[in-house]
Design a protein around this nucleic acid. Structure first.
Length: 812
RNA sequence: GCGGGGAUGCUGGAGCGGUCAAACAGGACAGACUCAAAAUCUGUUGGCUUAGUGCCUACGUAGGUUCGAACCCUACUCUCCGCACCA
């Protein structure tokens, strides 16, 4: 019969809530520890199994740390602005606010049913004015400091989202949220945050972070620092700087390519070639951005020529589809012999190819490696690595170029043409231009009465749009774009430290006490989004005097993805979705928690397995049953030895997120539990199991006579003195005997009911002590003799087979 | 193309120089209990061999280092994941 998990879980969830035992304050004498999982977007469909994994993972860690005597901050909140709510509003006709509030209420209910131990009084919801007010404040501070600016730029536009997106939200030319929708380019005036200001610091600090290697690598690549040389090429008497990492190949430059998207492209195009260039631009616009690798390198001659600063050669300038407009200067010097792209282009347009580095160059394959320079006048014979410096020096001396650094990282575009987000606190005045809303007038409230479905609801709301200019009091219009929701999530973890502060985003003392987050937990998909923005935000706020630390998340753990049992991604259309709440209904939260943690190592991708769930459910049932029937007696040294060893192992496993192995150790020990056990052992076992199964452990803790919460108990310490390897060797010897008896039994192939065991006199005690166990395991009548026992029954003289640790056996 | 991770028995998945035919779980099989089943309990689960032994073949493929390799090195194959025309 299954135990009554429904009743038990409800009971303890209610008690935890009523007694507020997970609420913490910075006044504690204990050392602080901040455990955080990435806050969820409260979707209307409720918790999914990925949430189950992520938050259980964090909860176990929080409970573990709490029991280890730390003052653990473990908060929860909601990333509650964002498109889905707004789209639902358009579709179903519910206001996003109502929709979101309802979703959050449902979320909280479900979260509580999984037994997650949060300090609920610190709850944060980013769509509330009391939160987004501070977004607006930070924006104004950024603006003051030059970290926020407005500029007209080619930006990514998703026709499904009906808004622009940041670089980080576009992959392979498609929208992060609509994988079938191609992102187009629009030229718009938008608000940017100057993340590039911190590119170098972000890059340099990466190494020191205690984060998974791959996340660090991804961020490094995203920031993409490269060292090179800026070389000035003269085109139509004007200097055009061009970035290159290979100035050593400058004598091999045979043409130039300017990006087709370059804002000044038309300045170069001569009258004769205007038509052709325009035709080309039209053509590449219609080409899909998606299949970049298959895209052929194409271009068109602009009619202009550039002068190679070292050779004074006249070389043609092309407009090309493979040059990125906003990396470097949007123009490249092309060296077809030593760059594959340039080679393909040169072959297509029959441009001269000139080899300048010794190496394995063919007409199909550019040589991109190192080597001695050739055809390079005074630099002939110089090794390419050396030549990079020498040529740069020469250019610098002649004022034709300089050493520089380039980053791939672009500034963060935060404007969104959508309603459900933080209003950007800006006014446009015909007289005064861009005017920030004064701090004292914050928050700029998001108007609630708006019309959905006809473009940006803020734009059509005249009472919102029309405002008097804060400076000249003349007629002005508000900014109607809202902020990217990643702006919200860039500092929510700081707000938790002081979430009820209505005067400031947070109190300095409190933030100094709690921050940085000691252990952050979340998916790897945020490597170059949330995690990078948050790092930027921290550094920017530090320089604005808000905080003192440099990095927000000291340690990071990335859990793997949990796929469906068929190995595919869980999705409604495939019908393979596991709903955690259903599982809780049928098996209870404790079993679900245990199952989620035991599929595989937590940092690797794995898949759902019903059998694992059932197996864990059975285990939980056995534990409950054991504690209901166990006789509380004196403990025995063997159990204590194993217990202490288990405590040692599990503590280490928990610390390192090897929960799957921790569970195995716990189960192993439980399998050794005899009919009777000491209270001490029973209590310690519950404590170790508690982070995984908080409900039944509270219940059983109470059942064996405790009145306080096991949640607040101290983690058992390892008593090394009690760990006795000899005891285990003895147990193993008994195990071995049982196995041997079974073995012989299977060989003799006849039914036996009695077994005579002949042991060395000094080993006899060990076997006598375990006589009951041997009987039970062999299901035979067992008689143990010492080999020197004169009266022993030994018809086949099997006692002569006895060796140390290996008794003789006779079956009858 | 660049970068990162994997490949273990019927399955999931530990192990990361000896104590490994390989934890733990599941499945399958056998036995006990039962009128029977479920649940529970006790075993077996690479091959051959033996009253508890010994041997052989095994940890993607091929080599190498070592007294000794699933574990280290090299190459290859396959696979998953990030980034991707960044000059």
């Amino acid at each position: 019969m299954a135990y009554n998990f429904k009743q038990i879980e409800k009971k303890w969830q209610k008690k935890w809530e009523e007694t507020k035992i997970f609420e913490v304050s910075e006044k504690s004498k204990k050392k602080k520890f901040y455990v955080l999982e990435m806050y969820p977007y409260p979707s209307g469909s409720g918790l999914h199994i990925g949430h189950g994994l992520n938050y259980t993972l964090g909860d176990i860690y929080a409970r573990f740390k709490r029991m280890n005597g730390l003052n653990v901050l473990h908060p929860m909140g909601f990333d509650s602005f964002g498109l889905p709510a707004e789209n639902a509003a358009i579709k179903v006709g519910v206001h996003p606010k109502k929709y979101t509030q309802k979703s959050i209420a449902a979320f909280i209910n479900q979260q509580k049913s999984l037994g997650w131990s949060y300090d609920w009084k610190r709850i944060v919801s980013s769509c509330e004015a009391e939160y987004y007010k501070w977004n607006q404040l930070f924006f104004l501070k950024f603006l003051e400091k030059g970290l926020a600016y407005r500029k007209k730029a080619p930006v990514n536009w998703c026709p499904k989202c009906k808004t622009v997106l940041a670089n980080e939200q576009v992959h392979n030319g498609v929208c992060e949220y609509h994988k079938n929708t191609e992102v187009g380019i629009k030229h718009l005036e938008q608000w940017f945050i100057k993340t590039t200001e911190y590119a170098d610091e972000l890059l340099n600090c990466t190494d020191s972070l205690n984060w998974p290697k791959r996340i660090k690598v991804m961020q490094k690549n995203w920031i993409g620092k490269s060292f090179g040389t800026e070389i000035n090429f003269e085109i139509n008497k004007e200097e055009w700087p061009v970035f290159t990492t290979r100035p050593d190949t400058i004598y091999g430059v045979t043409f130039m390519v300017i990006s087709a998207q370059h804002s000044r492209l038309m300045d170069i195009v001569t009258a004769d070639y205007e038509d052709e260039v325009k035709k080309f631009l039209k053509k590449i616009k219609s080409v899909s951005e998606k299949d970049v690798e298959e895209l052929e390198k194409e271009g068109v001659f602009t009619g202009s020529y550039a002068i190679n600063p070292l050779t004074n050669e006249k070389i043609p300038v092309y407009a090309g589809n493979f040059v990125i407009a906003d990396y470097g200067s949007g123009m490249v010097m092309a060296v077809p012999a030593h760059d594959q792209r340039d080679l393909e282009f040169a072959k297509k347009y029959k441009i001269k190819i000139k080899q300048v580095i010794e190496g394995n160059f063919t007409r199909d394959r550019a040589y991109t490696g190192e080597g001695k320079l050739i055809n390079s006048e005074e630099f002939n014979g110089v090794k390419s690595k050396e030549a990079i410096n020498k040529i740069t020096e020469l250019l610098q001396k002649k004022k034709l170029g300089k050493k520089t650094v380039q980053y791939k990282l672009r500034d963060w575009l935060i404007s969104r043409q959508r309603y459900w987000g933080t209003p950007i606190p800006i006014v446009y005045c015909n007289k005064c231009g861009i005017v920030p809303i004064p701090e004292k007038d914050l928050p700029v409230l998001l108007p609630e009465k708006v019309k959905f479905g006809k473009g940006n609801p803020l734009k059509t709301n005249s009472s919102f749009v029309n405002i008097k200019c804060p400076k000249c009091k003349g007629q002005a219009k508000r900014e109607t774009d809202t902020m990217d929701t990643f702006f919200d999530s860039s500092w929510y973890y700081m707000r938790y430290c002081d979430s009820k502060n209505f005067k400031k985003p947070f109190d300095k003392k409190k933030i100094d006490y709690w921050m940085p987050v000691d252990q952050y937990i979340g998916g790897a998909e945020h490597a170059c989004l949330h995690l990078l923005y948050s790092r930027f935000f921290t550094k920017a706020l530090r320089d604005l005097g808000f905080v003192k630390f440099d990095e927000p998340f000291a340690k990071l753990f990335n859990q793997g993805m949990l796929h469906a049992s068929d190995g595919r991604k869980m999705s409604k259309s495939l019908g393979n979705v596991i709903n955690p709440i259903e599982v809780v209904k049928n098996y209870g939260a404790d079993s679900l928690r245990l199952a989620l943690m035991s599929f595989a190592s937590l940092d690797s991708d794995t898949h759902w397995d019903e059998k694992v769930l059932v197996g864990n459910f059975k285990f939980v049932n056995k534990v409950v049953e054991y504690y209901t029937n166990v006789k509380i007696e004196k403990s025995n040294v063997k159990i204590e030895s194993r217990l202490n060893k288990m405590i040692r192992d599990v503590s280490e496993y928990l610390e390192n997120f090897k929960y799957n192995l921790a569970i195995i150790k716990i189960r192993e020990l439980f399998n050794y539990f005899p009919q009777e056990n000491s209270k001490d052992v029973l209590e310690k076992f519950l404590k170790i199991l508690h982070p995984f199964c908080p409900h039944i452990t509270e219940e059983l803790w109470e059942k064996i006579g405790n009145e306080n919460f096991i949640s607040l108990e101290k983690w058992p310490e390892v008593d090394e003195k009690k760990i006795d390897e000899n005891l285990e060797k003895q147990e193993e010897a008994v195990e071995k005997l049982v196995k041997d008896i079974h073995h012989v039994l299977s060989l003799v192939n006849k039914s036996s009911s009695k077994v005579y065991v002949y042991v060395l006199p000094n080993e006899k005690k060990n076997y006598i002590d375990n006589l009951e166990l041997i009987k039970k395991r062999t299901e035979l009548d067992v008689v143990i003799f010492a080999v020197n026992d004169k009266k022993k029954y030994d018809p086949e003289n099997k006692s002569k087979k006895t060796k140390p640790g290996k008794p003789g056996i006779y079956l009858e």
